[in-house]
Amino acid sequence: MSDTLEKPAKTAPQGERPDMKSPPGEKRVMEAIGLGCRFGRRWVVRGLDLAVPEGSVTALLGRNGVGKSTTIQMLLGLLPASEGTVSVLGLDPRRRRAEMFSRLGYVSERRELLEERTVSGLARIVAAVHGERFDRDGFEALRARYKLESGSRCSTLSKGQRARLLLSLALMAKPEVLVLDEPTSGLDVVVRDDFLEAIASFVAEEGRAVLLSTHLIEDVARICDRAVIMREGAAALSGEIESLRASVSRYVVRLTGVLPESGPLGLPRGVVVVERDPRAITVVAQGAPEHFEAALEAALPVEGIERRPATLKETFTCLTEPCTQPGPGSEARA
């Protein structure tokens, strides 16, 4: 049951490890250890540890260009990893890709279809690939619900229809894992709701898991219970969303003096300014409140500090902050 836990620790732990303290016996559907990808001499991703436990919807988050899509490609074996190990459903995706894809559903961010085929023609192809696993009746039901004409050519479908078609095809092949790269970006509210509802129903069944990359905080807040946050220049953070959120606080700092309109404030590292007025600033920071309150008082003419729990958006603003420059560089958003 817990075979994935006894993976040989091939790479030595580097720097801070993400929380690997999952409950004993928890099964990991996807796992990467020390994953890295290099294009020429440039490392796009390095030292990434990632785990998607059974029953979870894990969000892969990070600013643009931080390597989320590259990571997904490596996890699916579509791109060779320069270092590290990947295991999906206990399989090595580079060696047993066909077997892995028969148990995994993937919707890429580009939403590519065989443009010349019709909706039902495409479904027949997918059904032929998956054999008996493919639920034709289920597909027909979803197709009707999503109002997709079976005779429409794929090239004539709108963005939302393409997304719905791909989702229906992926779901009806009865996968154990669903990997969605930016599934809801550019879609209207109704199609997004369909996606979220489908994900919620999908993962409610025993032994399933979802990994999705997204920029839409509302989707994360609703549907995801875990997150892996990729950051530039630092190890990824991962854990349950609620504990990530609880680790970040928002401080509204009222000032006795007047601040300059812009320019560095000499705030401690890791403090991100979300709002800046002459007489008050709002910052978010991860860590123990006492530590930050003292540091803020040292850096600014403080009249009073009010601490509140951060919203999810603020949490991710804070946690996705690049860690390349030390000190005042963390005020990039001021």
Partner: peptide
């Protein structure tokens, strides 16, 4: 059921 509520609210069943 957890499942119905999750699908209806479009939230994670674990939540």
């Amino acid at each position: 059921t957890v499942r119905d509520v999750a699908a209806r609210l479009r939230v994670n069943p674990n939540t």
